[in-house]
Design a protein around this nucleic acid. Structure first.
Lengths: 157, 157
DNA sequence: GTAAGTGCAAAACCTTTGCACGTCG
DNA sequence: CGACGTGCAAAGGTTTTGCACTTAC
C-alpha cells in the first residue's frame, strides 16, 4: 500500500481542477501539490509555510510557483487572504463558512481569531451605495491584547 | 507681502512642541518642518509626499527623518496612519473628528473616502471582551468601484 | 508540437538601520 | 559639552519578474 493517507476531499480537488480547466490553465504536478498542501494546513499560514508544506508533497515546488499559485487558489475560493498589516500576509483554507468574517488580532503575539461578522455585507452595500459605488469586499479588524499577553505586559512593567 | 500663507494653527504647533518636550525629545528644525508640512497637506498622502512638502519648508529634511518623525506625529495625534493594504501606507492630518472612521476605497483608482463609523468602538469592545481581550484599535474598510471607474471598466470590456 | 508553467536568481520596493557628524539645551 | 537627532547609503525582507528549460495536453 504505497498510497499515503493524504487527500480526503476529492470533491474540492475536482472543483479546483474544474476551475483551472475552465480558465484554460493546466493541472501541473506542482499546482496540484500546492492545492493538496492547503488541504493539510489549518489556521492562518504564510506563503512560506505553504511552500514548506507543498514541498513535503512535491519537492520540486518552488517559491515562485507558490506566489504564482496563490491568486488561483484565492480566485477559485480554495483559500482566503488575510492581510492584517503585518510584514507578511496570511492565508486561510476556506471551510465553507460566511465570507464575512472579522479578525481579532493580538497586537503582542500576532495570534489571529476569525469571528463571524455578517453585518459587514449590509454595511458595505449601504456605505458604497451612499457614494454611488459598487461594493466588492469589506474588511473588519480589531487589534487587542489577549489574556496571556495582558498578564505578561503587566508583570513586565 | 513676502510672507506666504502657511502656518495658521499656532495652537496645534504648541501641542506638538509640548508633546515632544514632555517626552524629553528635541524640537529640531527638521521635526518642526515636518510638522509644518502636515499643516499644509490635505487628504491622504504618502511618506514620500510628506517628504516633498517638508523639503519645501526645509531643504535639509531627509527621508530617514520623515520615517523617524512619523511615529511621533502619530503618537501626538497630529496625523493618523491609514493602511489599506496597498504598496505604501497613507497618512492623514487629523482634523479633530472621531477616531472611529472607516475607509471606502476604489479598487481601481485607489481613491480613499473617510466615513464616520462610531459603532466600531462598541464592536471592538464587545468582540474583544467576548474573548477576554483588551481592545486597542479597530479598522473597517470597504473596497468598491467608484462611479467613474465603473464606467471605464464597462467601456473597456 | 507548442504554448503555458516552472525554477532560479536577480530585481523591486518601501522602510529600517548603522555610523559618523551635527546641534539642541 | 554631551546626548539626542540627522543625512547618507546600505541593508532588510517579502513578493515579483526575466529567462531558458520543462511539460501538460
Amino acid at each position: 500500500m504505497p498510497k499515503p493517507p493524504s487527500s480526503e476531499s476529492p470533491d474540492q480537488s475536482e472543483a479546483f481542477r474544474a476551475y483551472i480547466a475552465e480558465k484554460g490553465l493546466r493541472g501541473t504536478r506542482q499546482r496540484l501539490a500546492v492545492f493538496e498542501a492547503t488541504r493539510n494546513l489549518s489556521g492562518h499560514y504564510t506563503a512560506e509555510e505553504l511552500l514548506k508544506k507543498s514541498r513535503s508533497i512535491d519537492r520540486t515546488v518552488s517559491r515562485a510557483t507558490i506566489y504564482r499559485a496563490l491568486p488561483l487558489l484565492i480566485g477559485s475560493g480554495i483559500i482566503r487572504e488575510v492581510d492584517v498589516g503585518r510584514d507578511h500576509k496570511y492565508y486561510l483554507t476556506e471551510t465553507g463558512s460566511t465570507p464575512f468574517r472579522a479578525q481579532l488580532i493580538c497586537e503582542n503575539c500576532d495570534t489571529i481569531l476569525e469571528v463571524d461578522a455578517p453585518f459587514m455585507e449590509w454595511y458595505g452595500k449601504t456605505v458604497a451605495a451612499k457614494h454611488g459605488m459598487k461594493p466588492i469586499s469589506q474588511k473588519l479588524q480589531v487589534t487587542a491584547l489577549c489574556e496571556t499577553c495582558q498578564k505578561n505586559k503587566l508583570s513586565r512593567s
